[in-house]
Nucleic acid binder design. Structure first.
Lengths: 243, 243
DNA sequence: TCGTGGCATTTGGTATGCCAAAAACGTAAT
DNA sequence: ATTACGTTTTTGGCATACCAAATGCCACGA
C-alpha cells in the first residue's frame, strides 16, 4: 500500500480549512435540568431549616417549562451524585449530611489531595507550582485573611482546586470536586472560620514550598495534615451547624 | 408547651419492640434495570473487541420486559457512574478506559487506601486487623499464589475491600468500590498477573503488621506503595490490554 | 461507474396519560 | 372530643406515542 498521504480523499472538497466548528450540540433538557437543579440545590442553605427540603417533580417541570420525563432523569442523576434521595410515593428529599459524614468526606479529600501533592513533585513545572501563590497575593500583614473571610474562603477553595489540577490527574480532580461540592454546603461557615483562617495561609505556603523543593514526602505530609486539620476542626467545632 | 414526653402518642399501640422490619420496598424497575445493566456491563469483557460496544434502549426494554422509561433512567445513572456515555441520536456506548485512565484510577485508589490504613491504626480493633490474614490462609509455600492466580486474585480484592471497610469510613469504602469496579474491567489480567503475584502477598502481610503495630506512618506508606506499585506495573506492562 | 438526492429506518429526546400507594382530609359513630 | 373508617388528593413509577436528527439504502442520472 503506497500510503496516499494523510490528505482527505474527495478532490471535490477544498482542503482549505474554512474554520468549521462542530455545530452546537444544543444540550438536552435532561442535562439542562440536571445543571439547573444541581445549582439550585448547592445554592440553597440546606442546613438552615430543620425540616427536610422536598422537591416536587410536577412543580419543577412547570417551573422549568419541560415535561416530567427529563426532570425525572435529572433527578436520577442527582441521586447518583448523592444530592437527593427519592422515596417512593413520598417525595424527593434533598440530602442533608451529618457532621460525621462531612468529616469523613474531608478526610477522603485529604487523601486525594496528598496524592495530588505527591504527583506534583514529580511532574509539575516549577512555574506552575509557584503561581499557586497568586491566589493569596491580595492578603498580607496589612490585609489579613481573618478580616476578609469571605474573600479568603474563595481564594482558599480556588487554591485547593488549582493544586489538585496541577497533578494532571482527571480522576483526582473529579473526585475532589465532587467532594467539595458536598462539603461546601456550609456556606463558608466551616472553611472560612476565623480561628482557622489564621493558620491556614502559612500552611498553604508551606505546601507550596515543599512542592517547589520537590520533596515528595514532605509535600504529601503537609497537604494531608493541612486538610486533616480542617477535618479535626469541623469534628470539634462543627456541632452548631447540625441542629 | 408541657412537652408530653418523647413516647409515641397512641396508647393503643404497644411499645414493645416486636422486630418489625420495614416491609420490602419492592425495588423499582428503574433500580432493577440499573443493577442488571451494571452487572452486565461489568461481566462483559469490554476490551476484548476493538469496535465500540453499543446498547439499544428499545432492545433492552424488550429483554428486561419493561418500558423504555425506567431503562432510560437507569442509563442516566450509569452515565453518572461513568460506565456508559449516550450520544444524542447515535446511541449508548459502553465506555472504554485508556491505560492512562486506569493508572490514574489506581493512584486514586492508593490515596484512599493509604488514608484508610492511617485511620485503622487509630480506631480498629486488633482482632479485626489480624483477621485480615484469613484471606490468605489458603496460600502457603506448598500452595503458591502464582499457581492459583484466579483464586488469589479474588482473595486479593476481598482483602483490599475488607481493609478499607476497617476504616469505618463510608466515603472511603464507596469511593474505592466505585474505582475498583472500573479497574476490574480487566478480568484479573492485571491484578492477578503472575509476576506481580509473587511480591503481592508479602506486601499485604507487611501492611497488616504495620496496622497491628499501630504504626500510622508506616501503615500508610506500605498501603500506598503497594497499590502505587500496581499502578506502575500497569503503566509499564499494560500495553497489550489496550489494543 | 460514481455521485447525488431523497425516502425509509433507526435512535435518543420529550410529552402525556394512567396507575397504585400513601398521605391528607373529612365525616360519622362512640 | 376522639377514634375509626372511607374518600379525595398527592406523588412517584411506568407505559406509550410522537418528534427530529442521523444514517443507510436505493434508484436515478451524468
Amino acid at each position: 500500500m503506497p500510503e496516499p498521504k494523510q490528505t482527505k480523499a474527495s478532490p471535490t472538497m477544498a482542503d482549505t480549512d474554512i474554520a468549521i466548528v462542530r455545530i452546537a450540540p444544543e444540550t438536552s433538557f435532561k442535562n439542562k435540568a440536571y445543571e439547573a437543579l444541581k445549582e439550585a440545590i448547592l445554592k440553597m442553605d440546606i442546613y438552615a431549616t430543620p425540616e427536610p427540603v422536598m422537591l416536587d417533580e410536577r412543580a419543577l417541570s412547570e417551573r422549568l417549562g419541560v415535561s416530567r420525563t427529563p426532570i425525572r432523569e435529572a433527578i436520577a442523576m442527582l441521586e447518583q451524585d448523592g444530592f437527593v434521595k427519592t422515596v417512593p410515593r413520598r417525595g424527593i428529599v434533598v440530602v442533608r449530611r451529618t457532621k460525621a459524614e462531612i468529616v469523613d468526606m474531608i478526610r477522603a479529600w485529604a487523601a486525594l489531595e496528598s496524592m495530588a501533592a505527591r504527583l506534583i513533585t514529580t511532574t509539575a513545572r516549577k512555574k506552575d507550582i509557584s503561581s499557586l501563590r497568586d491566589f493569596f497575593k491580595d492578603f498580607s500583614d496589612d490585609r489579613l485573611p481573618q478580616d476578609n473571610i469571605e474573600e479568603y474562603s474563595r481564594a482558599n477553595i480556588a487554591f485547593h482546586q488549582a493544586l489538585i489540577s496541577l497533578s494532571e490527574s482527571p480522576v483526582l480532580v473529579d473526585l475532589t470536586n465532587d467532594l467539595l461540592l458536598h462539603v461546601r454546603g456550609y456556606r463558608q461557615l466551616t472553611i472560612g472560620r476565623k480561628d482557622r483562617t489564621a493558620t491556614s495561609l502559612p500552611e498553604h505556603l508551606g505546601i507550596i514550598e515543599a512542592l517547589e523543593a520537590r520533596d515528595t514526602e514532605l509535600a504529601e505530609k503537609r497537604a494531608r495534615d493541612h486538610t486533616l486539620g480542617l477535618a479535626a476542626y469541623v469534628e470539634a467545632h462543627g456541632q452548631e451547624l447540625f441542629t
